[in-house]
Design a protein around this nucleic acid. Structure first.
Length: 641
DNA sequence: TCAATCCGTATC
DNA sequence: ATACGGATTGAC
């Protein structure tokens, strides 16, 4: 074979983020195949790497070193995945090595030796129940015919989404192509795993090394045509790829917390683009990112007609926080608005369980408009305002400008109020208000996946709501202010997503479960819930982001680190024309150290590539100089505040 | 004039 | 991290 091996070394230094050429010694010629793991001497020490390709020559002027060792001839990094990883690194201003660590699980030698490699590509039947969705059955047929449709699907309340995804997957496999499906967490993965009858591998973060590698090899060796998993599965090898799909792309869990912080949705979309595969973005709600796909016509929207939604959606009613409470002692015990208390009581009496959604504790104090309750934003850069104990006046969290002359961007109000979030209601309090009904909790440390059909109060934090057999008789959405006044640009979108997720667990239809949301019925997000209209809300949300210059309409990068380091990086970066730097402002680092954060934004997504390239190059100059202090670069950080 | 040492830079 | 090249320094 060709004598030169191009190697991606496992070194995450920005200035070394490119392949290096080595000579293949004669005895390794047969095993040094593209995609295999190698060890090479790099700057005097032995490092791991992946062999990207073999070539005849090298552009390197100096003499080439020899490969030290081929760890295994198993081609774990397929060319399409290498290309995807490079594109993801570029998009997120990060290093290929960091992305490859996310994409390829660590080797487990025993598993590699033992794992079977039978190719199993059954000719799937692909009947489907997409009829309620105009364009749905055609979408499935297109996949079965080997086409690559792209759609943002808004599912009906109570939809058996794992079954719908399973149908899309079966149709894709029928066409002789593979599918990769990503869900937020282990609970969703279990459901999907159960629903998909096509032979598949399951890749989850929680798996042990052997299990994880075994499942990875099933896909890598082409033994199965389908991979289901959590965010890292977006990189799973699958050739030829016919479909990528994601469930509930608005869930934070899709955002990778390790550098370069890629989001599973973006990874899958890039992948669909690179490999000409179909793409399905499936959710009960709709994120601004999904809306952008629709508005740019990258994907078609698929949703049931309003008439069908009306029949399937539960009845939702808003209620003020405390108007009737004083008149209703039983409700006061639970600190529940009267309507919420009565709705729960009736559901329990009818023999059905009741879901109570309570936000998690510990949100940051935010500032909002006294008149319309809109989160207060900076007059200059539209960043969120915050109150600090050291300052009398609220100031912008992004650019630091004091907001002495505040004017609400929505209603023009000039007064601010602190929206400090108090503690949530406890399960014990609810238990006292409903003596005789069992109270169950589902939250952070103990998540229930399902509860029985018998009457019970089920208190859950967002994302941990168990499904109830037969559906809930009532769903109460409490302390909604905690969600809505979060100092986060996604607060409204996130609140609606969480409410819809809980409400979708109610018995379907106007005569089914009742949903009570304790919030002002005039708020946009609450209106969207009452009308069960996430698409219109998403369009409005994206419109606002466009006006304010926020992602995904614009592209932003946050630079966090010691003050000198952030300043140094900003000096070195040859930012694209029109890039706007906000801040830096002081932020509290996790370990208490004083850090600063600057935000850089460009108006269009096209300039995003140039922005990422400029930041990566500047980081390269700093790492080459061994400059003091690390700067964390996050492109389109999910939590912008 | 040459060798020992220092510093900066590249790392194949 | 380590290795190398060019510059710098000090002794003959």
């Amino acid at each position: 074979m060709a004598p030169v091996a191009r190697i991606a070394v496992d070194v995450s230094l920005a200035h070394l983020d490119r392949p290096f050429d080595y000579l293949v010694p004669a005895e390794l010629d047969g095993v040094a195949v593209p995609g295999c793991r190698v060890r090479v001497r790099f700057a005097g020490r032995l490092v791991d790497g992946f062999l990207l390709e073999r070539g005849e020559g090298s552009a390197h002027a100096g003499t080439l070193a020899y490969l030290e060792k081929v760890v295994s001839a198993e081609p774990v990094l397929r060319p399409e995945v290498a290309r995807l990883a490079r594109a993801v690194a570029d998009r997120y201003a990060g290093c290929l090595a960091d992305v490859l660590r996310l994409a390829v699980p660590p080797r487990h030698a025993r598993t590699e030796a033992a794992a079977a490699s039978t190719v199993e590509r059954p000719d799937e039947a692909w009947a489907n129940e997409w009829d309620p969705y105009p364009g749905g059955p055609e979408l499935i047929s297109a996949l079965a015919n080997g086409e690559s449709p792209r759609a943002v699907v808004t599912v009906l309340p109570g939809e058996d989404w794992p079954a719908r995804l399973a149908e899309a997957v079966a149709a894709t496999v029928h066409s002789g192509r593979g599918a990769v499906v990503v869900v937020p967490d282990a609970r969703d993965l279990d459901r999907l795993d159960a629903a998909v009858a096509t032979p598949h591998a399951v890749l989850a973060a929680a798996q042990g090394p052997a299990q994880r590698y075994r499942q990875f090899l099933l896909a890598s060796r082409g033994a199965v045509p389908v991979v289901l998993g959590t965010r890292a599965a977006a990189f799973a090898p699958m050739a030829p790829l016919g479909l990528v799909a994601i469930w509930d792309d608005g869930d934070d869990l899709h955002a990778e917390p390790r550098a370069p912080y890629p989001h599973a949705l973006q990874v899958l979309l890039m992948r669909a683009q690179l490999e000409s595969a179909g793409a399905l973005v499936l959710a009960t709600s709709r994120s601004a990112e999904a809306q952008l796909l629709v508005e740019t016509r990258w994907a078609v929207p698929i949703a049931a007609d309003r008439s069908v939604v009306r029949v399937r959606a539960p009845q939702v009613a808003p209620t003020g926080d405390d108007l009737d409470r004083a008149r209703d002692p039983a409700a006061a015990v639970a600190r529940l608005p009267s309507l919420a208390w009565r709705t729960a009581r009736d559901a329990l009496a009818s023999g059905a369980p009741v879901l109570v959604q309570v936000p998690r504790r510990g949100y940051l104090p935010a500032v909002s408009c006294v008149e319309c309750h809109a989160p207060a934003r900076c007059g200059r850069c539209a960043g969120p305002l915050e109150l600090r104990s050291s300052h009398a006046v609220a100031a912008c969290r992004w650019c630091g400008r004091p907001a002495a002359d505040f004017a609400c961007h929505r209603c023009g109000g000039r007064r601010l109020r602190a929206a400090v979030i108090g503690a949530g209601r406890t399960a014990e309090e609810l238990g006292r208000a409903f003596p005789g009904s069992p109270v169950r909790t589902s939250g952070r440390d103990a998540v229930l996946s399902t509860v029985g059909p018998e009457p019970a109060l089920v208190v859950a934090t967002p994302g941990a709501e168990p499904r109830a057999e037969g559906g809930y008789g009532a769903v109460l959405l409490l302390d909604t202010w905690a969600l809505l006044t979060r100092a986060d640009l996604r607060a409204g979108e996130e609140a609606l997503r969480r409410w819809l997720t809980a409400a979708t667990l109610a018995r379907p239809g106007p005569d089914g479960g009742r949903v009570v949301v304790v919030a002002d019925g005039g708020l946009v997000a609450v209106q969207a819930l009452l009308r069960w209209d996430p698409a219109t809300f998403a369009a409005r949300e994206l419109g606002e982001r466009r006006e304010l210059g926020f992602p995904p309409a614009a592209r932003m990068a946050s630079l966090t680190g010691p003050a000198d380091a952030v300043a140094d990086l900003l000096t070195l970066a040859a930012l694209p024309e029109g890039a706007e730097v906000l801040g830096p402002v002081p932020v509290a680092a996790s370990d208490g150290a004083a850090e600063e954060r600057a935000l850089v934004r460009v108006a269009s997504r096209h300039e995003g590539a140039a922005l990422a390239a400029a930041l990566h190059a500047a980081a390269g100059v700093r790492s080459a100089r061994k400059a003091e202090g690390a700067v964390r670069i996050q492109v389109d950080p999910r939590e912008l505040w």
